[in-house]
Design a protein around this nucleic acid. Structure first.
Lengths: 220, 220, 220, 220
DNA sequence: TATGAATGAGTTTTCATTCAT
DNA sequence: TATGAATGAAAACTCATTCAT
């Protein structure tokens, strides 16, 4: 599947053919991140991106058509770095509470680390429909996965059967991501551990998971 | 407290002295809402607002200094219409579950009714720091109130004592407001009743409220 | 018909509402003519037109959308000045040779007077399809009128019946206009009278008109 | 005279020394024709010409300095193909009417065949003075030749002595070339034969040539 | 107060041309 | 010779804001 990769270049302007070209393009993306994070999407001028990348203003257009397009490229680059799916398979965790904890923890840590960028994404989503749609789709995919998990737990009698799985999945998701935004972007002063713990607990309670296994009671 | 709506006149330009002036000012605000909702905050041109209000472009500046300022005025006007605090006192509801239901229901209904405007607020908050701060403060105030309630419940043994009251209050709040955004602004297709019910249930579970009183126990 | 005049404003930008506005718009058109004639259509910068009209660069856009549009306005204005149709009705001339002479003479005189502008039209027609189409249509209309005249002469036995009336009309027309271009724009040194006389004679010969009436036989 | 095509190398950039160079240069000229005819002179970008010739953009400058220069080269190449002077000597035709017919016919046929290119020449002449001057000179030379012919005919009593030979020569020339433009470039719908015949007849009439010799005297 | 014309700062974008490899 | 990336000058255009009437 991924092996075929039909080179969905999406009408990019120029894929650099020379090593120098690759360097310039990357310099531009890095500069864009810098300028975007510093000035915000709206106030970022293409001129400044070129300047920050130490290339002539026109060189920007060798690789990108617009501010939107370079932002797109930036998003893609960052996403590769941030995305860590298949937590369960990766970690081997089976206990639901522990899975929730690992998942929330990983998410919040990544969010914190890239807070300025996440703020930027939030902003651009409000400005550019295309990015908003991307976010929605990603959120939906994520919620569907979680809904399936919830449904399984319900079937196993381990989660509250009164809950609509999909709505619940959405609700708990947005709760976490929005709290991340509040704390790491808006600066709401909540200690990391307390944040994770509380969110974990709300998840557990909301689903009505059974009491946690005694953490590791090594006896006595 | 909030009922008094004090000060915060923020150096507005002119409070009209003539009846005609009042009319023009109101026409401008109404036009602003129309244009903002239609074009979004960024693409709304002051010229268009004047045009929509059927006044000359220069007349705008008789009452407002900038787009930001008229947006401010719009927000204030709308807030008066939307704000319904003191739910408990107003309704006399004492049962926690019922209070939660009433509160969520009222909020979601209002959100749905003013969805375009709420989208606008969301957008402007991403663009204008001042509005973002306003939102944060309002959110904080709301969360503090709810945290107090949660603390009381915990003290009474009616809510999970492991939860940090303030963080929980925040988390449950943003969960509801974000779901409202998702459904009424982004168009996520979730039926209103299912949305309310699920959110209510998540609240109740999260807090670990006791089983609901039998809905109508007309006897005993 | 004309009384209804559905205000075919053709999407013009602003029809000035104030006297000042009218003055500015006219100043811009006059400046445009000046700049176009001096620099040619292609090299004329909108900036320069504004400058020549002594208005700010932005003021141009109060009245026009583009270079093309102001050129359009200029053409229309000039055309009103140059167009003198219905020669026969106007002058009462009935003799064909005299009519040809009056017609050619009038045309060439007007062309000479507005030579720079005619050069400009020629140039723009080569650059902008819209103007080319206008010219074609005008040429066709003119040729159709002349073709009708030729047909009448043929029917009366006064013109060579072997000629295709429409093709002939076109041919004689373009001959005159092209010679005007050659002489008054390109500077081919042919005295005005010789030009008119020769063209008249070619027309007369081409149509095989009978010998001219003796001009004025002042004697017996 | 014209057959020698002397000098006028106008400082061209490089006459390729290698066979590969010759190939590249020709590819560029061919590509230029293609791009010019497709996009018009003004919109043709040097980049596109290089692209169409399958060479790197920089390679253009190995052979040409500018768009103007490659256009020049194109013109020269085409002219060699199109020019067929010395019609009389070539064909041996002596009858004036037949000579006119052959001349017009040959011209119109060539014009039709290369219509797009002729349109291009017309356009460029309006844009670039140098090309305009070339056209003028060529036109003058042609007219002088024809004027000489007319003078001879007049001297022999075979043409109207009232006509100024040079003006007439010019007039009849531009008539033909302009009609060719109208029909083959602008698309005026006139059948080829009717066009030739009518133009021939106008020439004959204009000069007042005597009646044609009976086409083929099948008798005697 | 209302009008609507005038202002002009500030970016984007194109593409011919150069140049290091 | 060929390559293709880098350069940067030059104009268009928008629209918030001012101001004379």
């Amino acid at each position: 599947m991924a092996a075929q990769a039909p080179a969905a270049d999406g009408g990019q302007k120029t894929t650099p053919r020379s090593a120098r070209g690759v360097r310039t393009r990357n310099a531009l993306i890095a500069a864009a991140r810098e300028v975007f994070e510093r000035d915000g999407y709206l106030d970022a001028r293409i001129t400044d991106i070129s300047k920050a990348a130490h290339v002539a203003s026109g060189s920007f257009y060798t690789y990108f058509t617009s501010k939107e397009e370079i932002f797109q490229a930036l998003v893609e680059q960052v996403q590769e770095e941030m995305l860590h799916p298949h937590l369960r398979e990766r970690t081997g965790i089976t206990d639901t509470r522990k899975l929730i904890d690992a998942s929330n923890r990983e998410y919040l840590r990544a969010y914190k680390k890239n807070a300025r960028l996440m703020a930027l994404f939030e902003q651009v989503a409000q400005i550019d429909e295309k990015f908003m749609k991307l976010r929605i789709e990603r959120g939906n995919a994520f919620a569907r996965r979680n809904a399936k998990l919830i449904r399984t737990l319900q079937d196993d009698g381990e989660a509250d059967r009164d809950l609509d799985p999909l709505v619940t999945a959405h609700a708990l998701s947005v709760m976490v991501s929005r709290m991340a935004y509040m704390v790491f972007v808006l600066g709401q002063r909540i200690p990391f551990e307390r944040l994770v713990t509380t969110l974990n607990q709300i998840w557990a309670n909301a689903l009505q998971l059974g009491d946690p296994e005694p953490e590791t009671a090594p006896e006595a």
